[in-house]
Every structure is written in C-alpha cells, then in structure tokens.
Simulated assay, not measured.
Amino acid sequence: MDATKTEEPFLRHVETDVLIPKRMREKAKERCVERVQAFNICCKASGFLMVIKCREENAALKECLTQHYKDPAFFEECKQEYIKEKLEFQRTGIPAKNRTQKLPTSM
C-alpha cells in the first residue's frame, strides 16, 4: 500500500448507488443549465403538446446530462465532495446545509 495515499472511508451501498448519484444529478443540472432552461421554456410554451414540440430540447438536455453521468472523473469529483461533507459531519455533528447558515452578529 502506498504510504502517501490517504485511505478513503468506507462507503455504504446507499451512498455509492443513491446519494452520490443524486449529487451527480444536481451538479449535472447546474452544468447543463442552458439546456434545462430551454427545455423548461419550451414545455411552458407548449402545454400538453410538449411531448411533440420539445423533442429537440429534450434530446439536447438528455445528451448533456448523460455526458456527465457517464464521466468517471465527474463521479469521482462528486464522491470526493460527498466524503468531505461526510467527514465534516462526523467531526462536527452539523449537517452541511446547516453549516452554511450565518451566525447572528449580535450575541
């Protein structure tokens, strides 16, 4: 074993198969924001006909998202972010969403 490599914490099945992919979906939507917006605008303008009228926007969105989902480097990036948050939670007991809140200035 390489002494310079840090050992990663054990990840449960639910973390690797559910939680990290969920993070990937959220980040992929951020990276494909223009296609998400184009699809949303088309859907709002088309009403019930969106299935027919928005095929091009839907295909472009799917292509962008799938490109990210299949990228092993993107999975690794999301996994490392998840591990960092998990370790910080274990250290502090404070969930990530609560850590970003600002503390009151007058105590």
Rank of each mutant, 00 (worst) to 15 (best):
F10D: 13
L11P: 03
R12Q: 12
R12N: 10
H13I: 11
H13Y: 10
H13G: 12
H13T: 12
V14D: 15
V14I: 15
V14S: 15
E15N: 10
E15D: 15
T16D: 10
T16N: 07
D17S: 11
D17C: 06
D17K: 02
D17L: 08
L19T: 04
I20L: 08
I20K: 03
I20P: 02
P21G: 09
K22H: 02
K22F: 04
K22L: 10
M24A: 08
M24D: 07
M24F: 09
R25P: 07
R25N: 14
E26G: 08
E26Y: 08
K27P: 02
K27Y: 05
K27H: 09
K27F: 11
K27Q: 12
K27T: 09
A28M: 00
A28K: 00
A28Y: 00
A28V: 00
K29N: 15
K29G: 15
K29L: 14
E30H: 07
E30T: 03
R31M: 12
R31H: 11
C32F: 08
C32V: 05
V33A: 15
V33Q: 08
V33P: 01
E34S: 11
R35T: 08
R35G: 10
V36G: 11
V36E: 15
Q37D: 13
Q37T: 06
Q37H: 08
Q37K: 07
Q37G: 09
A38M: 02
A38E: 11
A38Q: 04
A38K: 00
F39T: 07
N40R: 08
N40V: 01
I41C: 05
I41F: 05
I41S: 12
I41L: 10
C42F: 09
C42V: 07
C42E: 14
C42Q: 13
C42G: 14
C42L: 15
C43Q: 13
C43G: 12
C43L: 05
C43P: 02
K44W: 01
K44I: 04
A45G: 05
S46N: 05
S46K: 06
S46D: 14
G47F: 06
F48Q: 11
F48E: 15
M50L: 09
M50S: 10
M50N: 09
M50Y: 03
V51M: 09
V51D: 13
I52E: 11
I52F: 07
K53Y: 09
K53D: 14
K53I: 06
K53L: 13
K53N: 14
C54Q: 07
R55A: 12
R55E: 14
E56Q: 15
E57G: 07
E57T: 02
N58Q: 10
A59Y: 03
A59R: 02
A59M: 04
A59S: 08
A60M: 05
A60S: 10
L61N: 02
L61K: 01
K62I: 01
E63L: 07
C64G: 13
C64S: 13
C64W: 01
L65R: 03
L65K: 03
L65Y: 04
L65V: 06
T66A: 07
T66C: 02
T66N: 11
T66F: 05
Q67I: 01
H68I: 08
H68A: 14
H68M: 11
Y69G: 01
Y69S: 04
